Simulated assay, not measured.
Amino acid sequence: MKKLSLLGSTGSIGTQALQVVQNLREQGEKWEVAALAARSSVNRLEEQARKFHPEVVAVFDEGAALSLRQSLRDTDIQVLSGMEGLCEAAAWPGADLTLNAVVGMVGLQPTLAALQAGKALALANKETLVAGGAIVMEAARKRNLPILPVDSEHSAIFQCLQGCPERGALKKLVLTASGGPFFGRSRQELAGVTREQALRHPNWDMGAKITIDSATMMNKGLEVMEASWLFDLPEHRIEVVVHRESVIHSMVEYQDNAAVAQLGVPDMAVPIQYALTYPRRMPSPAGELDLCALGKLTFYPPDREAFPCLELCREALRRGGLVPAAANGANEQAVALFLEGKIGFLDIPRLVEAAMDRQDPGVVTLEAVLEADREARAFVAGAAH
């Protein structure tokens, strides 16, 4: 019997994770959902709770939690709220594995709570490692706990590294990027793009924030930072290649220049399921890859002038300390403002760079990371008015 605590259950990754659990159950696997958590989508969370019967649900929004408590009063499901509730769900005693699929910095404290409670961690919340990589990896090392990557790129690298004979055999990582909806456009052509245009991702169905990050290529920059922590490699040994088809999810290159790639149709069911069942391989709901129908695979270098967020993330990683936390916080605030129509598309990298320049690397502690995040958000919010 495996028991899962799922944070971010109503989002894109969370809903697919529950589908994966259901699929595994139908194959005779013994899976239970011990805890569910979401930000505020109480209607969907109630549906999930009634279907999967967790011991506890947590809602970050206090008002939404009150509403859900009323809706579930005919059940014995406990309803928690706020950051404290998210952390309690992450560390829930009845769970063996915690899957953190929340979006943004809100995921950092629940990640630490899960690790401190001795839980194996499946991680889809990249901001956890971007902002607090040093303290998160130390918490995992101290307790000898696995961090199983769920992002398709990091899962691909993790899968490719299963055949790595020794640490010194690895030469570099290659992260693939779809290029988003604006591939091929110049910086000038991006000046007037709209919210609706930026939300039209060509290959993946994701939430609004991650889709905008893909459009700016900030998402790939965050993934470079995440990969650096997960696989303990410096920034210069992590390459990014634009691969429009999103079939090669990423690859590794060894010292003998052999490259090993993980391929598959663009479907998050595979990386989610691999994190849940590792090291076993099980039938999944993802479709088979038909290379003949696909016909060709294409590759391009990223356009650093049109999409400066990628290089800004590299620079944040090189500066280290609290600078990545400031870059991430500034980006989250800037994306929210762009989605509200309050700033332009190209204002996102401009504000991220300005917030980075204001941040001293300092010493990384949880309190310092949270403060750097708050200051960066406040700066961006003020600069936008």
Rank of each mutant, 00 (worst) to 15 (best):
residue 296 K to G: 09
residue 223 E to G: 14
residue 212 I to V: 15
residue 245 E to G: 10
residue 282 M to F: 13
residue 260 V to S: 03
residue 212 I to A: 12
residue 276 L to M: 14
residue 249 H to E: 01
residue 292 C to H: 09
residue 268 M to R: 06
residue 257 N to I: 00
residue 233 L to I: 12
residue 293 A to S: 14
residue 222 L to E: 01
residue 304 R to Q: 07
residue 231 F to V: 01
residue 215 A to H: 04
residue 216 T to L: 02
residue 246 S to A: 15
residue 238 I to H: 07
residue 227 A to R: 01
residue 237 R to E: 11
residue 253 E to V: 13
residue 236 H to W: 05
residue 239 E to H: 13
residue 266 P to K: 06
residue 271 P to L: 06
residue 258 A to P: 00
residue 243 H to A: 05
residue 225 M to D: 06
residue 282 M to W: 05
residue 232 D to I: 00
residue 250 S to L: 05
residue 249 H to C: 08
residue 305 E to V: 11
residue 275 A to K: 10
residue 304 R to Y: 13
residue 293 A to M: 13
residue 215 A to M: 09
residue 209 K to M: 11
residue 235 E to R: 11
residue 243 H to I: 12
residue 262 Q to Y: 04
residue 264 G to N: 12
residue 230 L to W: 11
residue 305 E to T: 14
residue 271 P to A: 10
residue 288 E to D: 04
residue 223 E to K: 07
residue 286 A to D: 04
residue 221 G to C: 03
residue 209 K to L: 02
residue 225 M to L: 15
residue 251 M to D: 04
residue 244 R to K: 15
residue 257 N to G: 09
residue 303 D to M: 02
residue 221 G to E: 01
residue 272 I to E: 01
residue 295 G to N: 04
residue 288 E to W: 09
residue 305 E to S: 04
residue 247 V to G: 08
residue 292 C to A: 13
residue 261 A to D: 08
residue 253 E to L: 03
residue 279 P to H: 02
residue 213 D to M: 05
residue 245 E to H: 12
residue 224 V to T: 03
residue 265 V to N: 11
residue 266 P to V: 03
residue 279 P to L: 11
residue 249 H to L: 10
residue 234 P to R: 10
residue 278 Y to S: 13
residue 267 D to L: 06
residue 215 A to R: 12
residue 255 Q to V: 15
residue 242 V to Y: 07
residue 215 A to Q: 12
residue 228 S to N: 04
residue 208 A to G: 00
residue 268 M to V: 10
residue 238 I to S: 00
residue 243 H to W: 07
residue 249 H to D: 14
residue 236 H to N: 14
residue 268 M to K: 12
residue 253 E to K: 06
residue 251 M to P: 03
residue 278 Y to K: 06
residue 295 G to M: 09
residue 303 D to W: 06
residue 215 A to V: 03
residue 269 A to S: 15
residue 222 L to F: 15
residue 248 I to V: 15
residue 273 Q to N: 09
residue 305 E to K: 08
residue 295 G to T: 08
residue 254 Y to M: 15
residue 222 L to M: 14
residue 232 D to P: 05
residue 301 P to M: 01
residue 236 H to K: 10
residue 266 P to M: 00
residue 302 P to C: 08
residue 271 P to R: 01
residue 254 Y to L: 15
residue 244 R to T: 14
residue 216 T to E: 07
residue 213 D to F: 02
residue 221 G to M: 10
residue 294 L to T: 13
residue 242 V to E: 06
residue 254 Y to C: 08
residue 303 D to V: 01
residue 276 L to P: 05
residue 295 G to C: 10
residue 220 K to Y: 12
residue 301 P to E: 04
residue 244 R to G: 15
residue 272 I to Y: 04
residue 249 H to A: 12
residue 241 V to K: 09
residue 260 V to R: 10
residue 265 V to H: 02
residue 221 G to T: 01
residue 227 A to V: 00
residue 240 V to I: 06
residue 301 P to A: 14
residue 301 P to K: 11
residue 238 I to G: 08
residue 272 I to Q: 04
residue 210 I to K: 08
